[in-house]
Design a binder for these strands. Structure first.
Lengths: 244, 244
DNA sequence: TAATACAGAATATTCGAATGTGTAAACAAA
DNA sequence: TTTGTTTACACATTCGAATATTCTGTATTA
């Protein structure tokens, strides 16, 4: 359930602070740390077996990308999940990714298109679910991310790419929390295929349109489910507590 | 030169970490901490008379907004200043602020327009320079920021407003570092006036066009000066060291 | 000469303990 | 009961010291 790896940092993190940052981000995006949940230093110390120093550094980094809320003298909590916020994320992604895609077209060459195709093929071979009604598979999440990254990779704007990454994490979180088993794999993959083909043909306008529509479509069931959830329970499922 | 206030936090910061964060951001944006400069914990400890803990927390926050570069086990440095980066900031601002302004038009009412007018009037009364050939006055910077904030304040998108704030800080830094005494006060204020008037009249398209042009125009002399600087000195003025 | 190895200094990272701040329960007064 | 006050506890913040890593200059070797 929770990511119970011990500090001996497995991958490329060279400090505890970076290691626990990656871990916290993943756990928040995956939903293992619930929206609105209070992040006590003591509980996190136990969960990740690190001291407060690297924890606080990681939490502050996450607060800058709005996945964590920090308030002076009152600690940290996981960013809440609201309909308005999801709508904001979706709409911002549509705008930003369109801008970035145009930028990518301006600077991308054949290698760019080849990388997209490779990422698409890899994604195609990766199943979205490992069990029925289970969570979205980690492997698919990675491949999906890589595909969209490849699509935008030719863009030069560091700033917009930075924003895109932030928005992506938020969108992924909503997918995982609200609609673990709600996505239509075939439909998504068809959209990826069409986007790949259109980019290969060099049709900027159509590609932007498709990307935008892809974001809308993929988010639609998530948004609907969230609206239903929020409508029903006032506080029942301790999933998300609103502002005090 | 440097901001030598002692920790007894003057304004609203309730922790040393937040206080030193504000201070560092201001000093980086003002150029008191030079681009590319190494930010040793020891030197910062002395400069601000705080321990390493709040310092590191503040530095990590700044690294998320790209004003500071952090590298594991190698500490922190002020983000370098480059022509490509400035161009990216300008172009991103044009795109993002246009989006946000459209959003503001969708949701803003008379109170919004009134707030813009008030901020404009305040800015009009604030002189940009206190001495000839000196730095841009703090008061003008604040009033200028407030005016542009007012223009965008009716927008609902938290995400885009967050991005806008980040970009603004970067743009302000380039203004301060590259072209302290280069801006044409009268021209800028004329553009502010025209923008205010156009928004009052409710002309969305024209307002977006003007805002975009304002960003371009205001940045132009800064960009030119930077290109000249970079062209001349390889390393002479220890102002900016490029990547290793 | 160039490349490598090493010692010592400089620096970054992390922990545990001390301090300060907010919060909720217990109590007192109205 | 309601309102305000105190107190005790939980928690966040911060420091100084201990540890680990990187950097710099010097010596060694091919």
């Amino acid at each position: 359930m929770s990511s119970t790896a011990t500090p001996p940092f497995g991958e490329d993190a060279k400090t505890l602070a970076s290691w626990v940052y990656d871990r916290l981000r993943d756990d928040i995006v995956a939903g293992s740390l619930a929206p609105g949940q209070k992040l006590t230093l003591d509980s996190l110390k136990e969960r990740y077996t690190v001291g407060v120093t690297p924890l606080r550094e990681a939490l502050y980094r996450l607060s800058s990308s709005l996945l964590v809320e920090a308030e002076d003298q009152r600690g940290f909590r996981v960013a809440p999940v609201t309909v308005a916020h999801l709508q904001d994320i979706i709409s911002s992604r549509e705008h930003i990714e369109t801008l970035v895609l145009r930028d990518a077209f301006r600077h991308g060459g054949e290698d760019w298109k080849a990388a997209i195709f490779a990422a698409f093929k890899l994604l195609e071979r990766t199943p979205m679910y490992e069990m029925d009604n289970g969570p979205i598979s980690r492997a698919w999440e990675t491949a999906h991310r890589r595909f969209h990254q490849a699509v935008l990779s030719a863009a030069r704007s560091k700033a917009l790419l930075h924003f895109q990454t932030m928005l992506w994490d938020h969108a992924a979180r909503y997918r995982n929390i609200v609609a673990p088993a709600l996505l239509d794999e075939a439909e998504l993959q068809a959209e990826h295929a069409e986007l790949t083909r259109t980019i290969e043909q060099g049709d900027v306008e159509m590609a932007c349109l498709l990307l935008r529509r892809h974001i809308t479509n993929a988010a639609a069931p998530v948004l609907e489910a969230l609206i239903r959830q929020k409508g029903q329970k006032g506080k029942s499922s301790g999933m998300s507590f609103e502002r005090i």
